[in-house]
Design a protein around this nucleic acid. Structure first.
Lengths: 244, 244
DNA sequence: ATTTTTTTTGCGGGTTCCCGCAATGCGATC
DNA sequence: GATCGCATTGCGGGAACCCGCAAAAAAAAT
């Protein structure tokens, strides 16, 4: 019995994916569907699929969160991410959680039907990673030492995006207040926020901290979903998980 | 010649919409498609449709920006907004630009095909506004005097989201520094950011300003698209429109 | 093991943000 | 015209943020 799993909240897109997978000659004898990340995790338990095609932006858990849970128990599960978005927030999130032994793909929804079908075949039948060219570009720019954010810089970006004070960040990351401020300064430099223009009066036009968040949002280093995930993680580590 | 216009970047959704409109008995003899807001504006000029069905979240101009431009020249054009998102950022954006004489609809993509078809018929054939119940709820909560943000509070929220300093906001809105700070204090109160918890050391855990932005993003008072629109508007008024 | 590079850190000072107190101005209502 | 409610505003002080200077510690490279 060869089962595959589709994880996609949009009904039209689910139907389209079903069609593509059927046409992919995967010897797929059972095709299961889930409409969000939590349902996906349940389906993996119950049906033990050989591969998954998954959207990234979904209600409840995102594709990244679901993949993290799935890979925690099935590190060799091949997953093809299929998304409208090439946000570095997603790219970075995936890169952080992919097990070394897993095969994965990241295909944009703007790709042709044929490219999607061939990518699915490559990942599931040949065990090769298939990353769309645009995604590859985002990965490479993110890894550049002089302009890409380091892990520490990205963490501190998420921390200020949540609204934490410098002292709160220092406590959570177990570093000094000045060290937090040093990381922030490096972050601002990489986001191009050094020597910003002044108002006619000579006062600053931009507040560096909130401007960094704005620039990161506009360049899709972070997005609404990565903020929600960061909020959940912070609440979990500070023991404030009750709804609010 | 009775022409209608579909504005939708997702090909699957465009096809679905085409089908729904054909089934709506609109006596539609020509159905034009645009894949983004800018193309939509061009099509309105060229084809002079009797009605438009438009997505909200699109590349280049959003549905709100496109509708604003279209309504500037055709204030009676009926438009049905069809979106995956009930973000207050979109609701507020639309409410701000609808001309008094226009008929419009706001339908979520999770609504049934029948509901969508009937809503389109209601707006285009009967000239009635049709707002999904969930959207209506967002509108009402937004208008509540004690918890909804006033126009001034929402403006200052967008200003801090862009990273402007208090002085820059005062200059742009022609009010005093203290007045900006007064509006910010009211904003923080409405977002529930008064008397926030402290760290064990007695220092603040959250910085009010960035926490306000985070809460607004998570509650979808603002979103990535409204930030981009606000950035464009600020650059236009400060004369810094060159790409950056 | 040594050297080099990167990161962390303390101290101090300037700027921005936040908020209380109190007064003024403006618009709406009677 | 008087009164009331709301918004604006000036002043001042405390807290948080930002950054320079300089030194120490840790990690990476040789």
């Amino acid at each position: 019995m060869s089962t595959f799993l589709i994880v996609e909240d949009d009904a039209l897109h689910r139907n389209f994916l079903r069609e593509v997978i059927i046409q992919s000659d995967l010897e797929c004898t059972q095709l299961i569907e889930a409409a969000d990340g939590e349902e996906a995790i349940r389906c993996v338990h119950e049906y033990k699929p050989k591969g998954i095609v998954m959207d990234l932006q979904m209600p409840n858990k995102t594709g990244v969160q679901a993949a993290k849970a799935i890979w925690a128990e099935n590190p060799k599960m091949p997953i093809v991410f299929w998304s409208n978005y090439d946000d570095e927030a997603y790219v970075r999130g995936i890169t952080k959680i992919v097990p070394a032994c897993a095969t994965y793909g990241y295909i944009l929804k703007t790709s042709s039907k044929d490219r999607l079908r061939r990518s699915i075949q490559c990942v599931f039948l040949e065990g090769q990673n298939v990353i769309d060219r645009e995604i590859r570009g985002v990965q490479q720019r993110g890894q550049d030492r002089s302009e890409g954010l380091s892990e520490a810089e990205y963490e501190v970006l998420l921390d200020i995006t949540l609204g934490l004070t410098d002292q709160a960040i220092a406590d959570r990351r177990n570093i000094s207040l000045r060290s937090v401020q040093g990381r922030l300064q490096q972050l601002y430099a990489k986001l191009g926020l050094i020597e910003m223009p002044l108002l006619d009066s000579g006062a600053a036009e931009y507040n560096s901290r909130t401007r960094a968040v704005a620039v990161a949002l506009m360049s899709r280093l972070i997005n609404g979903k990565s903020i929600e995930a960061a909020e959940l993680e912070y609440r979990r580590m500070t023991g404030k998980e009750a709804g609010s």
